[in-house]
Design a protein around this nucleic acid. Sequence first.
DNA 1: ATATTTATGATTGAATATTTCATTATAGTG
DNA 2: CACTATAATGAAATATTCAATCATAAATAT
Lengths: 262, 262
Amino acid sequence: MRERNGSKEERQEQILDYILQHGSISLQEVVLQFECSEATARRDLEALEKAGKVIRTMGGGAKPAGLVSGREIPFHEKQNKLYREKESIAQLAASLVEEGDVIGLTGGTTTYLIARALKNRRNITVVTNAVNIAMELSENEDVQVVLTGGMLRSKNFELCGPLAERTLEALNIHTMFMGIDGFSVEQGVSTYSELEANTAKMMMKRTERTIAVFDHTKAGRNSLFQVAPVTALYGIITDEEPGEELRERLTKEQVKVFVTSD
Amino acid sequence: MRERNGSKEERQEQILDYILQHGSISLQEVVLQFECSEATARRDLEALEKAGKVIRTMGGGAKPAGLVSGREIPFHEKQNKLYREKESIAQLAASLVEEGDVIGLTGGTTTYLIARALKNRRNITVVTNAVNIAMELSENEDVQVVLTGGMLRSKNFELCGPLAERTLEALNIHTMFMGIDGFSVEQGVSTYSELEANTAKMMMKRTERTIAVFDHTKAGRNSLFQVAPVTALYGIITDEEPGEELRERLTKEQVKVFVTSD
DNA sequence: ATATTTATGATTGAATATTTCATTATAGTG
DNA sequence: CACTATAATGAAATATTCAATCATAAATAT
C-alpha cells in the first residue's frame, strides 16, 4: 500500500471529525486535504456511510440526522423485522396518551417507536431510562423529557443500577409502557437482563398504570428474570389475539387487553 | 398548470413529512408517490433544501442534522469557535487524569473535548450530566459512564433540575472539570443558566477537586449566575496567561493555574 | 377573451458515482 | 529472505444522476 500520511482508519476518522465540525465536506476537499485520488475519497465516504456516520451527498458527504457526537442512535426502523407489528402497537399505545399525562417508557425497540409516535404531542412529560428515547423526544420542546440517572449500558443505551432506582423514587408516573422479552400467564412479564428487570420493577412501583407492550413472538414465552405477575398490570398491548385461556385469565384479573387488529 | 393531486406546496410538505418520519426519500419514491416527473421531484427537493429543511443526497433527499424539528442544535456550531484553544485545554485536562480516577464533567464544548480526549483510557469512571458526553464515552467499555438523571434541556444536552441534584447526592467524585461562561476574581466562576449553575454547584459539593476549564474569552467576564468563588477551586485550566493581579490572587488562594502554552 | 405568470415535463450536456482492473505496499509464511 | 496472499490505492470505462434550457399547459390577471 502506498500510505502517504496515515492509515485508512486515521484518514476516515479525520474526515469524520471535519464533517462533525463543519457539517459537511466536499469530495474535492477530501482529495486536496489528504492528497488522495477521488476513488479513495469516495471509498472513505462510502465506508463512513456504511457505518452510519456520514450521509453521502452529491459530490461529498454530510452529517446525518440521528447522529449524536459521532455515534449513531440505534434501533432505527429498518433493522427490525417486526417493524409493522411494533409500529401498530406503538400507535395504539400513543392513542391512549392524553394531554397533560406523565408517561413512563422503559428501553426497547417497541417503546422507542412509542416515543416516536408521541414526538409531536404537546404538553406531555415522558420519563425514561433509555438515552436514545430521550434524545428522540428532546427534539420537541413541547415534550418534557426526564431521564433517570444511572450507569450507561452501551449496548442498549439504557440507564440501570441503583442510581436509576434512586432517581425513580422521586417521580410519579401516570401510565408506563413497559417493553418486555417474555409474557405468560404463570410468570407474568420477564426480561433477559436482571438490571433491566430491577429498573423496570422500580419504575412500576412509581406508576399508577403499567401497560406491557410486546409483539406476538413474546407471548407464551418466559425470559430469565421476572418483572411482575400479570395481576400487577393495568393492561397489555400486543398485535395478536391472545389464546382463550390467557384471555380468560386476563379478564378475570381485570387486565385490559388491547390488540392492534381490533 | 396541470395539477394532479395537489399543489406544489402540499406536495413539498408531504415530502418533508415523509423525510422527517423515514429519515430519507429517494427520487423515485417521490416520482411514484406523487406521479410527477423527475424534474419536478428534483425541483421540490431543491426548494426544500433551499429552505434548509432537507439535505439532498445522490438520488434523493434526507433529514439534515443541523435541523431538529425546525430548531438547530447550537452545540455543534459553538464547537467551531476556538476549537484549537479548547482542544489544547482538553488535552491538558486529560493529562491530569490517572487510571482509577472518578472524573466529573459538566456539559459544554470544552468538557466534551475532554471526554473525547479520555475516550481511549482504561479503568476510569466518568460522571456527567451531559448526554452527548455520555454517548461519546459509552463507545469504550473500559470507561464506566454514570449519567445523572434530570430534565433534558434539548439545546445543550444537559440534564438539570432537582433530579440531577438528587442523583449527585449518591456520588463521590475525585476530580471534576467544570465548563463555565465567565471567570473573574470578584465573582469567581459563573454561567448563563441558573439551572446549569445549580447543577454545577451540586456537583462541586460531591467533588474533592474542582477544576474550571475555559478559554481566554471567558476570563475577566461575569455571567449572570455565580457558581462558586475562586477560593472554592482546586485549579483552573485556560489557554492564555492570566493577568498579574489575577495570577497573584490565585496564588494567594492556592488555586493551581494550568496554561496550555506553558 | 387575451396576456401573463407559474408549474410542469422533456431533452441534452455536464457532473458525479459505480464498476472493474492493474499496481503497490503490508503482513504473513516457509 | 524470497514468496505469497491480502489489502489499499489509483486509473479508466461505464452508468447514473444532476443542472440548465426550452416548450407546453394550467391558473391568474387584465
